[in-house]
Design a binder for these strands. Structure first.
Length: 571
RNA sequence: GCGGCUGUAGCUCAGCGGAUUAGAGCAUCGGUCUACGGAACCGAGGGUCGGGGGUUCGAAUCCCUCCAGCCGCACCA
């Protein structure tokens, strides 16, 4: 089916083009009509004519047939009111369309870099945003037909591994593995850190172990591999718990680019971009300065001969473009890294590794703040484990289910509690504009009232409940879709706006736009639910209302699934 | 100092260059309990959209400037 917006936009664009080729109608959903076109004013200005006059001319070319009626309002707004016939036809088409009117996009290969936890470190709330936002974007891209390559850029390399490996040796492999596999990564890391800081002998061992690791010593590599593998297993458990679609196959840790680093240096040298500065090999892309106003380097190779993370990022980027042949790359990484990524992209462009046709974007998100409005630091000890956060939410969901006497066996209740808990946490994270810093507030995240994930799940559960009761006693074909009640019409308009909500979220990489849409839709549904009896409605009105319930349920379930949130049948 | 992000109701946040009263949620207060699930619904109070300029027929939205907060600014990733 062609979406309601698209059908209107097509007609309007034609009329605007008849006045001035390519003029944008600026079509929007409206509070004053069903849709409004605001493009007349801009067009009038560019033509040096009065807006009302231009509006009249546009209308003279406008063939909306029986889609909508139009009237000019204010300085030159075109208010469109959809005809009952068109609304009905669109709803019928939507009901028959598995994709609910969301069109498939041209096939693109989109790489999404997200989550990126560190080996032998606990996943904490600081990892939540990248993981949840990245996963939502991955799901949305897949839904519109893009081929998504998820990349989990795990921190599996660097100096800390000296102390981690030595600690592993101290513990003995078996008990080390046990300790790691129960997910107690923090205490493993902290113990290693403590010994490194307090025990000179240990610290020396750790330092020479780093050298052995980088030198490719087989035994050292074997021990390192244990740390990495155990951690990846643990990450997968956390992803499963959160219902995040990342798998071990998506892991491409920093170490996986080691063999490409020398090439990065060689090729940058060949292009003449690489400059030695204070013993380090650097590129100085234009437009970046340090605090003294001097050119700021991207350090590719450190003065100690080690590679910086810039080298790894460049190597990864090249591989993604050359070998994976991506059309688009999204880096779901915290806002503090903005300058670093800008520099990496700039250098890649200078080196000719990032062609214009590849869209490359830093999907930045704000920092997680403590109640003191300062960044929640990993080492500050304030960090809340991701699994701990989920456990808390599960606990509350389970209590809520018991309180409400939802008749369930233990196993079903546990599963449902988990679904509700995930919804609460993910919604709290996804529903706010991602660039904004957010204050970590556990109560807010696991709350089930108001604008929350569980509210949406509840709306869906009520819809399904009605449909269960109705059984096979109705049919879409019998629904006349006359939308006699305002609440029915408002709900219908909301349902038909799904395609633009998905497109808007996708274009801007802002999942919260989809959240806003879904919450609005849920509210439209409850207004309808309060105003219009469904099962007790007479005649064909019953079919119509049941059809609206079913469309609502499908739309909510689909929308939630794009956010990585389940829509249970009952709760 | 330079750069980035942020500043909207007591709190947490939406708001796409547009039109009377700038919207939600939480909290507070007051209502709705025999239609279909009260994790709900309805109503009330609460805002000089950080300040000041500018562009425009029109600015929370675009431009400039100032203020505040956070972040980044050479070898940790």
């Amino acid at each position: 089916m062609i979406s309601t917006y698209a059908r209107l936009a097509e007609r309007l664009s034609a009329a605007f083009s008849a006045v001035s080729e390519g003029a944008d109608p600026v079509l929007r959903i409206s509070e004053h009509g069903d849709y409004q076109a605001n493009g007349v004013m801009a067009l009038a200005k560019s033509l040096g004519r009065s807006p009302r006059e231009v509006a009249a001319e546009v209308i003279s070319h406008l063939d909306l047939a029986d889609l909508a009626s139009v009237e000019v309002a204010g300085p030159g707004f075109l208010n469109l009111t959809l005809t009952p016939g068109f609304l009905g036809a669109q709803l019928r088409a939507m009901a028959l369309d598995e994709r609910l009117g969301v069109a498939l996009d041209s096939a693109r290969r989109v790489l999404i870099d997200y989550s990126a936890p560190n080996v032998a470190k606990e996943m904490h709330v600081g990892h939540l945003r990248s993981t949840v936002i990245g996963d939502a974007l991955a799901r949305m891209h897949r839904y519109v037909g893009h081929e998504v390559i998820a990349r989990n850029h795990v921190g599996d390399w660097g100096t800390p591994f000296g102390m981690l490996i030595e600690h592993l040796i101290d513990l003995g492999e078996e008990s080390a593995v046990t300790s790691l596999s129960i997910g107690d990564l923090d205490s493993f890391y902290k113990a290693a850190r403590h010994k490194f800081d307090t025990d000179e002998v240990f610290a020396d061992r750790a330092r020479s172990r780093v050298v052995a690791l980088q030198g490719g010593d087989a035994e050292t590599r074997r021990l390192w591999r244990i740390l990495v593998d155990e951690s990846v297993v643990y990450f997968s458990q956390v992803y499963d718990l959160l219902d995040v679609s990342l798998t071990p196959g998506d892991v491409a840790g920093e170490s996986s680019y080691n063999h490409l680093l020398a090439g990065v240096v060689d090729d940058l040298t060949a292009t003449g971009l690489l400059v030695e500065s204070d013993g380090a090999l650097c590129v100085f892309p234009e437009g970046f300065t340090n605090r003294d106003g001097e050119a700021l380097p991207l350090i590719v190779k450190k003065s100690d001969e080690g590679f910086g993370y810039a080298a790894t990022d460049l190597a990864a980027l090249r591989q993604r473009v050359d070998e994976l042949e991506v059309d688009e790359m999204l880096y779901v990484v915290g806002a503090p890294q903005a300058q670093h990524l800008e520099m990496v992209f700039a250098v890649a462009r200078l080196a000719g590794w990032l062609p214009e046709r590849v869209h490359c974007e830093h999907v930045a998100f704000g920092s997680v703040l403590g109640t003191d409005r300062k960044m929640l630091r990993t080492r500050a000890g304030v960090s809340v484990k991701l699994v701990g956060l989920l456990d808390e939410a599960i606990e509350r969901a389970s209590e809520a289910l018991i309180e409400r006497h939802v008749a369930l066996d233990d196993e079903s209740r546990d599963e449902l509690s988990l679904q509700i808990a995930r919804a609460a946490i993910k919604w709290a994270d996804l529903s706010t504009e991602r660039q904004r810093d957010y204050v970590f507030d556990l109560d807010r995240m696991v709350s089930f009232e108001g604008e929350t994930g569980p509210y949406l799940q509840y709306a869906h559960a009520r819809q399904r409940s009605i449909l269960r009761r109705a059984g096979e006693t109705w049919s879409i074909e019998a629904a006349p879709f006359v939308l006699a009640e305002d609440a029915e019409r408002d709900l219908a308009l909301g349902l038909l706006a799904l395609p633009e909500a998905v497109a808007g979220a996708l274009e801007t990489s802002h999942p919260h736009r989809l959240c806003t849409y879904l919450f609005d839709l849920a509210q439209r549904f409850t207004a309808f639910y309060e105003a219009c009896p469904v099962l007790a409605a007479p005649g064909a009105s019953r079919d119509e209302r049941l059809a609206l319930c079913e469309l609502s349920a499908r739309t909510l379930a689909t929308g939630l699934s794009l956010l990585g949130i389940a829509a249970p049948e009952r709760m």
